[in-house]
Every structure is written in structure tokens, then in C-alpha cells.
Simulated scan of single mutants.
Amino acid sequence: MTPTPDAPAELASVLRIAVVRLSRRIRSERDPELDLGLGALSVLGILHREGAQTIGSLAETERVRPPSMTRTVGCLVDRGLVVRNKNADDGRQVVVELSEEGWRVVEAERRRRNAWLARQLAELTADERDLLRRASDLLGRLATA
């Protein structure tokens, strides 16, 4: 029996490829002069969305080892994009948060990428945009499963 596009395994393959390609395309819209890797940008995004975090929490979210996250955070500190502070509840822990410059960079990057995506969406029909609006809710659910 030939799989149909509605079969979960077939849909998984098609959807995965489309999501990865779109994600890569959106990421490619970053400011080339910023000279930050995707991991560093992801950490900035987490701190922007969720607020101050420990290195361990950031490492867990990004699914990397704490020493790797420590290096990433160190680079961001050196660039003035984040600051390290003592954890108010446990002075042995360090909490990382965005600096004012970090906020500015994240906001600028989001505006840049959103503008690119908005231009692409403007080329679609109203029905296509409505379909994507509805699908975005489902994709969000899948992302947090």
C-alpha cells in the first residue's frame, strides 16, 4: 500500500523538510554584520522571551552541556549583550540576563526577520495566509510537545 499524504509518517517527512527549510531561510535573514552564531542568537532569544536564566537552565533549553553554554555566555558577555549576576536565592549560581544592547540586538533581528516573512506572506492569497495562521497554532503545539 502506498502511503498517502495524510499518513502520519509521510506527513512527518514532508512537514519536517518544509519547517527546516523555512527555518533556515528565516535565519539567513540575520544581520551579517552582527557576526553571531545561531546558538548565541538563540540564547539571546530565550533571555528576551523568558527573562533571566541560569547557565544550567539555558543549557537544558538549548540541549547542550553546561560547559558549552558557559562558553557561549562568555562570548555574549564579551560582546556586551548579556550580563552575569549572582542568583539572589543561591549566591553560588550565576544568572544571565540581557543587557540594554542585547535587547536592542534581539529587537532589531526580530524586526528584520519579521519584515522578510511579512513580504513573503504578502505574496500569498488571503486563503493561503488564513491556512498558515491556522497551521501556526498546530505547529506551536507540536513544538512544545
Rank of each mutant, 00 (worst) to 15 (best):
M1Q: 13
T2A: 14
P3H: 04
T4M: 08
P5Q: 09
A7L: 12
A9Q: 14
A9W: 14
L11A: 12
A12M: 15
A12D: 15
V14T: 13
L15D: 04
I17N: 13
I17Y: 15
A18T: 13
V20R: 14
V20F: 08
V20I: 13
V20N: 09
R21N: 10
L22I: 12
S23H: 11
S23P: 04
R24M: 11
R24T: 14
R25C: 10
R25A: 12
D31C: 05
P32F: 00
E33S: 05
E33Q: 08
L36H: 03
G37L: 06
G37W: 05
L38R: 13
L41T: 02
L41D: 02
S42M: 06
S42P: 01
V43L: 08
V43E: 01
G45S: 06
I46L: 10
I46T: 06
R49G: 08
R49Q: 10
G51H: 04
A52L: 04
Q53T: 07
T54F: 07
T54C: 06
I55V: 05
I55K: 00
G56E: 07
S57I: 04
L58D: 00
L58S: 01
A59Y: 00
E60K: 08
E60R: 07
T61Q: 08
V64I: 11
V64S: 04
R65F: 13
P66A: 04
P66E: 03
S68Y: 12
S68T: 14
T70R: 09
T70E: 07
R71D: 10
T72H: 02
T72N: 05
T72F: 03
T72G: 02
V73D: 01
C75P: 08
C75V: 13
C75R: 15
D78R: 03
D78S: 06
D78V: 01
G80D: 06
L81V: 02
V82Q: 00
V82P: 00
V83Q: 04
R84E: 09
R84V: 02
R84I: 08
N85G: 12
N85E: 15
N85R: 15
N85A: 15
N85C: 11
N85H: 09
D90S: 05
Q93D: 06
V94I: 11
V96G: 00
V96P: 01
V96Y: 01
E97D: 09
E97G: 07
E97S: 13
L98G: 00
S99F: 02
S99T: 06
E100D: 13
E101S: 11
G102E: 01
G102C: 04
W103C: 04
R104Q: 11
R104W: 08
R104M: 10
V105H: 00
V105A: 01
A108S: 10
E109L: 02
R111S: 11
R112A: 00
R113Y: 07
R113M: 11
R113A: 09
W116D: 01
L117W: 03
L117I: 05
R119C: 11
R119W: 08
L121T: 03
L121S: 03
E123K: 12
L124D: 05
L124T: 07
T125W: 04
E128V: 05
R129G: 00
L132K: 03
L132D: 03
L132C: 09
R134D: 14
R134W: 09
D137T: 15
G140C: 06
G140V: 07
